[in-house]
Nucleic acid binder design. Structure first.
Lengths: 231, 231
DNA sequence: ACTTAACCGAACTCACCGGTACGCATTATA
DNA sequence: TATAATGCGTACCGGTGAGTTCGGTTAAGT
């Protein structure tokens, strides 16, 4: 019959927490895609094959729904500390951190997430604040700590680790970030491009802040660019 | 009488082009302050002590008004080329460029302008595009050209001038830019802080890309930081 | 099987905003 | 001073979206 032409029509609709998660997932997708103002509660309900009442049964308001989703995702933007935690040499640690950051900024939900946070920063400043703290703030702090201890170990020479951290992160991130924020569509950065860029940033950084060990200026650029273990 | 209790009530309202400029000025202020969606035509009219009809007599629609104001301001974000155009030595040129960029990003209308462009990038992509091209795009292009010719002159050693330009601009801009975009209120960057940061970026850059002349790594940091001629 | 709580669809309220229409006041100019 | 253009206030239209209500339906626990 025409009734079951769509298999979805006869699915068993889950209740309770399960349903709530479905709604949250859909809402997150739509908010990230269209932004806060351009996403209506009706759109979310329809997309999830639910009704507005169900939506409001689970979430008290659009604002609350948005806040919950965004702050949940804020955890994901805490830059990975793996390379900094292990006692890797600076060249390796910085390269890995740089690659992680660049991936985070340019791939998957990254651009949309930053975009929406910035767009709604004046409407939800406290959200932007926790986002900054968990994301860029945490990354900067970790890198600062790493640079300081690496300096104490004699691997680096950073009299002002926090400023050095800002410089490195900036060099890696900046241009691609702005590009993603302003022109969404054209973000086709190849993996090779990324590696070259991060590599260049690491080399520049180490030229200035490198310690007395043999990791200063070298023509053999391969020495500072180990292949990351995971693509 | 009570009628002239407010002095404003009896001012002579200018007509024609003058009035249009008044309206544009007010609209610009409000758009920059509250964003596109959160600014209503009624707000603009009231703030300018005008009526909506007058507003619509001068501007065909809210969209057109916004576009006119923003693209007019886009001219202002073309990074200054003065230091790059004159044949200053790299240390001086880069320092001046960096200071100009940082000022542009953090002072006056800069943060709001970037903020609103990013926020409305998906609604008005062509506006964002011309903004990027006239602003960051132009700056990057000019710096790339400068680095290339400085390399040919033997003042620098940049095998890939465009990448080098991205690294420098990123190191100077990134952190402060993000900070301004996400957390509007706290942008109290002192002039001294700015100078130190730009200075550090220049030193790092020149450590790696500096030519054979005596402008490589130096402990005398003052040599690369002449006072800018204009505050 | 029966009860209950969750779900659905649709219609509704309420408020806001972009844009327009109209009647009256003010200004510039001839 | 007469006239035309411009500006003002207010009311209105059409549309949209957040949040609510209600009767009927379906899934889950006992």
């Amino acid at each position: 019959m025409a009734a079951d032409a769509k298999a979805k029509t006869v699915r068993k609709v889950p209740r309770g927490e399960k349903r709530r998660e479905e709604l949250a997932e859909v809402a997150g997708r739509l908010f990230l895609k269209h932004g806060f103002a351009e996403t209506t509660m009706q759109m979310i309900a329809s997309e999830a094959e639910a009704s507005k009442e169900t939506l409001y049964r689970h979430f008290s308001s659009k604002e609350a729904l948005f806040a919950e989703l965004i702050s949940a995702r804020a955890a994901a933007v805490a830059g990975p500390q793996s390379a900094l935690a292990r006692d890797e040499p600076p060249a390796t640690a910085l390269f890995e951190l740089g690659m992680s950051l660049l991936r985070l900024i340019t791939k998957d939900e990254g651009p949309s997430l930053f975009h929406i946070i910035i767009a709604d920063a004046h409407r939800a400043p406290e959200l932007a604040a926790i986002f900054y703290e968990r994301g860029p703030g945490t990354t900067l702090k970790r890198l600062t700590d790493y640079l300081r201890s690496a300096t104490q170990r004699g691997q680096l020479r950073c009299p002002d680790p926090r400023r050095a951290a800002k410089l490195f992160v900036g060099a890696v991130i900046a241009h691609h970030h702005l590009h993603c924020l302003i022109g969404q569509p054209p973000s086709p950065i190849t993996s090779g491009e990324m590696r070259e860029h991060v590599q260049a940033a690491v080399e520049m950084f180490l030229s200035h802040f490198g310690g007395q060990a043999g990791m200063g200026r070298e023509t053999d650029s391969e020495s500072a660019a180990p292949q990351p273990e995971e693509s």
